[in-house]
Design a binder for these strands. Structure first.
Length: 477
DNA sequence: GTAGGGTTACCC
DNA sequence: GGGTAACCCTAC
């Protein structure tokens, strides 16, 4: 069994080799045992490879933007800010180039392109960039970025400016900026750990030997903190090794895709219903889900190609956080992440009480059930893996205490009823006017603080109520 | 993810 | 007890 720390060294070395293709890199990432979270240096290497892959395909996408942001958090470099600006502009402007040149295509195509542009302006400039300015990554916010933001916002109300932007060579500028950034950052990173070690051995450089020993000790102590519980967990359940899993995936003909999307809702649901959970100290499955959950999932749905490493673009709220420790799963395909999580789940589940395992799904409706309210709202009904931990029961029944009610399984949990305040109502009204009714997910995402305690369905319900579409539960015809 | 309709809690 | 706002479920 390869030591995870050694696995990280080997992977870093191989990823820097130009003759190791993306598909092979993907297999290596999956097959090699690695520390979790990944060491920053390896994370940076992965992100640089991701950027290189984008360049080779001449692709500039929101993922490129996210890679640059993550790189900044890992290793700030002066070349990152210009690249970030150029990529942000290209990601915003690119929908405009889809507008038809001939008028025969009709106004609908124009409107669609404009709508995509408006959405990009909001998502990238109003959310991501605005949040960057308040975050630890504020160094990415240059004068050029501010100027670009003003121009993009001006283009929202100026059709002529949109036409002019559509004709600009923003893609070429972004590719050049990323290329420059890539070259500079690779230069700054210097040789890989293994290369440095090899050099030291060849030159018998005593000082470097000492530093290698110190570094090695540090890495080992890091491993002992983060990985020992995982190793213990793996011993309990005897799951297939990562190499086995990688092999079976290849044999299944699925190939290995390395991207980062949310764990399939259904898959997680199955685990929750079975009462599986993952110890926070053992693995970052829950943290990963939180990381995923906070990610902007709209507009990043382009299918990744096999063998690419695709970190997910961040939620604007997350832009202010340091992601020096990027979980291993950040670079994994959802299928593989699920394999990893479910294996660990199964291991952890062996320690669970049988009664916990048999707990019925909270989503099962019982017509005779009484209702309890709880304070903490899951973002999606029944989806929170920590639902039981988060529950704050508020009994609405005077005859029974909360504790006695909790002991039965016949009670449906219900959120505490909260009246809409004027700020929420006003914000919703404005948001509907701006984005249109029906874009509840977008509206919630653009006002996360105000609608923190509201679900997308709540927004819809409130809007319909205010519009007089229905009164209470009676639809107005 | 959203729409439509059902259920529940709250207020008078 | 009735009206209604808020919440929930489920089909698409």
């Amino acid at each position: 069994m390869v030591d995870p720390v050694v696995g990280a060294w080997v992977l870093e070395f191989l990823l820097r080799r130009p003759d190791v293709g993306d598909a092979l890199a993907g297999e290596l990432l999956l097959a090699l045992p690695l520390p979790s979270p990944l060491p920053p240096r390896l994370s940076a290497t992965l992100l640089l490879r991701r950027l290189a892959a984008d360049l080779s395909r001449r692709s500039v996408s929101p993922r490129t933007l996210h890679s640059l942001h993550l790189l900044y958090l890992l290793q700030s470099s002066p070349s990152l800010a210009p690249a970030f600006t150029a990529v942000a502009v290209e990601c915003t402007v690119s929908p405009l180039r889809l507008r038809p040149f001939s008028s025969s295509s009709g106004p609908d195509a124009d409107a669609d392109a404009d709508a995509e542009f408006f959405d990009a302006v909001n998502r990238i400039w109003n959310c991501q960039v605005a949040e960057l300015e308040r975050s630890e990554a504020a160094g990415l916010v240059s004068c050029a970025l501010r100027e670009a933001r003003k121009e993009m916002e001006a283009a929202v109300v100026d059709p002529a400016l949109r036409t002019e932007l559509a004709q600009r060579e923003t893609k070429e500028a972004a590719l050049v900026a990323v290329q420059v950034c890539l070259e500079e950052m690779e230069k700054e990173m210097g040789p890989t750990f293994l290369e440095a070690a090899a050099d030291a051995i060849v030159r018998c450089d005593c000082e470097t030997h000492r530093s290698l020993v110190v570094l090695s000790d540090k890495l080992r102590s890091f491993r002992s903190i983060r990985l020992e519980p995982v190793e213990r967990g793996l011993e309990i359940g005897h799951p297939p090794s990562k190499i086995d899993r990688a092999r079976s995936t290849v044999e299944d003909g699925k190939g290995i895709k390395l991207n980062d999307r949310n764990i399939e809702k259904g898959q997680m649901g199955t685990d929750q219903e079975q009462g599986y959970s993952v110890d926070k100290n053992t693995m970052s499955c829950e943290l990963q889900e939180e990381f995923d959950h906070k990610s902007c999932d709209n507009n990043y749905s382009d299918t990744p190609q096999s063998g690419q490493m695709d970190p997910v673009p961040p939620d604007p709220k997350d832009l202010g956080k340091k992601h020096h420790d990027i979980p291993t799963d950040t670079f994994l395909h959802p299928d593989e992440k699920h394999i990893r999580c479910s294996n660990l789940d199964a291991n952890t589940a062996t320690n669970l009480d049988a009664t916990t395992m048999q707990k019925p799904s909270l989503m099962n409706r019982n017509a005779t059930a009484h209702t309890l309210e709880w304070d903490s709202i899951p973002t999606h009904y029944g989806k929170s893996p920590n639902m039981e931990k988060e529950m704050d029961y508020v009994s609405s029944m005077n005859s029974k205490s909360s504790s006695s009610l909790c002991e039965t399984k016949e009670y449906v949990l219900r959120r505490r009823k909260r009246k809409w305040n004027s700020l929420e109502e006003e914000t919703l009204r404005k948001a509907v006017a701006r984005y249109g009714a029906g874009n509840w997910k977008l509206i919630k995402r653009c006002h996360p603080e105000i609608f923190e305690r509201r679900t997308e369905v709540d927004l819809k319900d409130k809007d319909m109520l205010d519009d007089g579409v229905y009164t209470g539960n009676r639809k107005v015809v």
